[in-house]
Nucleic acid binder design. Structure first.
Length: 378
DNA sequence: GACACGTGGCG
DNA sequence: TCGCCAAGTGT
């Protein structure tokens, strides 16, 4: 066993985290590969504290791969609502169906088979085999990358292909012959609790003695980050269109940004004069861009819409852009619709998966309800 | 190889 | 307010 694995495993025994997916069982026999798989997908690009409530909710809704495979996408997305990266939920459902159809309902236990499943890449496949089946496969997630970059004092951008390949080789080389599953969870715990992105606690680190980055005092500089372009800002409009107690909502196309989620009809305005945005210092309002506005909403709704500005807006930030959504009240003539449009009683909105941005809209409308009775409950 | 893909917390 | 950051994968 390497000089790296030995102290790490000793540390893990006393300081490792107690996480729910580490004590899963099937009929009393641990572990449950399905639960491990679900946890790995939930944890992609997402911290443990964020995942915990989702993990419990997801497994109680879909306790087995069969139950997931039989589910509808709206129910899976509803369970995923607010977590982000919704392609994970779509792919999880697709993969569950494929496991039932092609793998007899059992999570496959080879790397090549796992890699055929949507949403499972090299790192997640390695983690599943490693943790669920005690197979000796390396992983390379954010934690492992950061640790390796520091321990081996790699001063180049880890995103470069050659650097990534080197990190995979290093991850593989450190993996002990036995207890690879403990090692993998140990190194992730180390990254999450000691070798953190900012202010790593090197004083408490079991491998600081052999950390080249620490020896050179570079632990706070690594990994190096290439300068990021600043994210653009876009203005959106959306319409709260009511008919009695019902509201018109629309399901987004199944792929791409927020794919499959429901939202209030609207879209991006390209020719919004900067003066028209109250959020940027003016009280001019949205009136004079009315034409383009109606075009956007009417294209979404498929009929003419009478719009009134509500003087409300919500702001939201994605990884790659920021947006301000300007809210309007709308009314239409025809109440007949077909998917992806749907009239929904207001109290049934919560049955549908919405993005966080549109959840903010719902909250905002509920909050102004007292003073603006006209807007939401009539 | 570069970019798309969410969200909430933090300094 | 803003940029950075977190258990990656798909195109």
């Amino acid at each position: 066993m390497s000089r790296f694995a030995m102290p790490l495993l000793r540390w893990y025994k006393k300081a490792g985290r107690d996480l729910p997916w580490r004590k899963t069982t099937v009929g009393g026999v641990p572990p449950d590969p399905y639960a491990i798989w679900v946890s790995e997908i939930l944890l992609q690009q997402t911290q443990v504290s964020t995942v915990l409530p989702y993990y419990h909710r997801f497994l109680s809704n879909f306790p087995t791969v069969q139950s997931l495979a039989a589910a509808e996408i709206d129910d899976v997305l509803k369970c995923w609502q607010g977590l982000g990266y919704y392609a994970r939920a779509r792919n999880l459902l697709l993969a569950a169906r494929r496991i039932v159809d092609r793998f007899g309902g059992t999570v496959p236990l080879t790397l090549s088979e796992l890699l055929t499943l949507p949403g499972i890449g090299r790192s997640s496949a390695g983690a599943i085999l490693n943790i669920a089946f005690s197979q000796r496969h390396p992983i390379l997630d954010g934690n492992v990358k950061r640790i390796l970059v520091r321990v081996f004092c790699i001063t180049k951008d880890p995103k470069e292909r050659q650097v990534t390949e080197k990190l995979w080789r290093l991850s593989e080389s450190l993996l002990p012959k036995t207890r690879a599953d403990h090692f993998t969870q140990a190194i992730m715990d180390l990254g999450a609790t000691i070798c953190t992105p900012a202010a790593p606690k090197c004083d408490c680190c079991p491998v600081s003695r052999l950390c080249k980055g620490y020896q050179k005092g570079l632990q706070n500089k690594l990994p190096i980050r290439p300068v990021r372009k600043k994210t653009p800002h876009y203005d959106y409009v959306c319409a709260i269109i009511r008919n009695g107690e019902k509201v018109l909502i629309k399901k987004r196309q199944e792929t791409g940004l927020l794919g499959g989620l429901w939202e209030f009809p609207g879209g991006r305005v390209s020719n919004l004069c900067s003066d028209a945005s109250p959020s940027r210092g003016s009280k001019v309002g949205m009136g004079f861009i009315g034409k383009s506005l109606n075009e956007i909403i009417e294209k979404e709704v498929g009929q003419s819409v009478a719009l009134t500005p509500l003087g409300l807006e919500i702001k939201h930030a994605f990884t790659h852009f920021k947006m301000t959504i300007h809210l309007f009240a709308g009314s239409v003539r025809k109440s007949k619709t077909q998917l992806p449009l749907k009239w929904v009683p207001i109290d049934q909105l919560k049955e549908h998966p919405f993005s966080s941005a549109h959840q903010k809209i719902i909250l905002k409308l509920q909050n102004v309800r007292q003073s603006r009775r006209d807007l939401w409950c009539g």
